[in-house]
Simulated scan of single mutants.
Amino acid sequence: MSPISIRKATLEDLDVLLEFEQGVVSAEKPLDPFLAKGHLNYYNIPELITSNYTQFLVAIIENEVVASGYIRIDNSKIYQKNPLHGYVGFMFVKPTFRGQKISTLILDSLKKWAKEKELKELRLDVYNNNIEAIKVYERFGFSKILVNMRMDI
């Protein structure tokens, strides 16, 4: 197995990250009947890469970007004990590279950055029927705390 390195994303990674975004959308469309039809964009990737409040990372194997993830400093609700938290998003690993714990390497690096920023809490959103992603996040130490519910009317 080739060594995996983690580095900050740059604007030069934009094309591959746009492909990753569509990979995320494709994976989530069957999980969410509330998503719009057609082409979707979830993220403002250039802003995520350049923001001072975000750490956007990519994983590299043999000069190929194979995975991504970011953490963003967000305000918590006024009634929560931590005024700020790190919000983790855009976790994506190319299908041919899954099963190598690359997402764990990215999460470790994001957690380290969050600690350097003196954050005390990480959060993320994951579809309740995305069982594989939930397993990864639970192995990393995340736990479920809230169920978001919707209905058509």
Rank of each mutant, 00 (worst) to 15 (best):
K94I: 10
I153M: 06
N44R: 07
D74I: 12
A114Y: 01
N52M: 07
Y42G: 07
D32M: 04
E47G: 13
K117H: 11
P95C: 10
L84A: 05
L146K: 10
E62T: 11
E138W: 04
E64P: 09
D152G: 08
F97W: 13
D108G: 07
Q55P: 01
M91S: 03
A9W: 06
S143T: 15
I71A: 07
E118L: 08
D32C: 04
F90K: 01
E132R: 12
V66L: 12
Q55G: 02
V147P: 00
R123Y: 03
I153W: 11
A133H: 03
N75M: 11
K135A: 13
L124K: 00
T54A: 15
P30C: 02
K111H: 12
L11C: 13
E19S: 07
A133L: 05
E121A: 03
R72G: 06
S5N: 11
A59Q: 00
I60C: 07
P46L: 03
P95S: 15
L18R: 14
Q100V: 07
A59W: 01
R150C: 05
K117M: 05
Q80F: 13
E21N: 09
E118V: 14
V16Q: 05
R123A: 03
N82E: 07
I145C: 08
V66S: 08
H85Q: 13
L17D: 00
N82S: 07
K81T: 10
K81C: 06
L48S: 00
Y79C: 09
H39C: 08
L84E: 12
D125Y: 07
L119S: 03
I145F: 13
E19K: 10
F20Y: 04
E121W: 02
L124M: 05
F140D: 07
I73C: 11
I71R: 01
L57A: 02
L57H: 01
D15C: 04
F20P: 01
K144Q: 11
L48Q: 00
N130K: 06
K120P: 02
D15Y: 04
Y53K: 15
N41C: 04
L107N: 04
K144I: 04
S2V: 08
K37Q: 12
N128V: 06
V136F: 02
T96W: 05
M1Q: 12
N44S: 09
A114H: 03
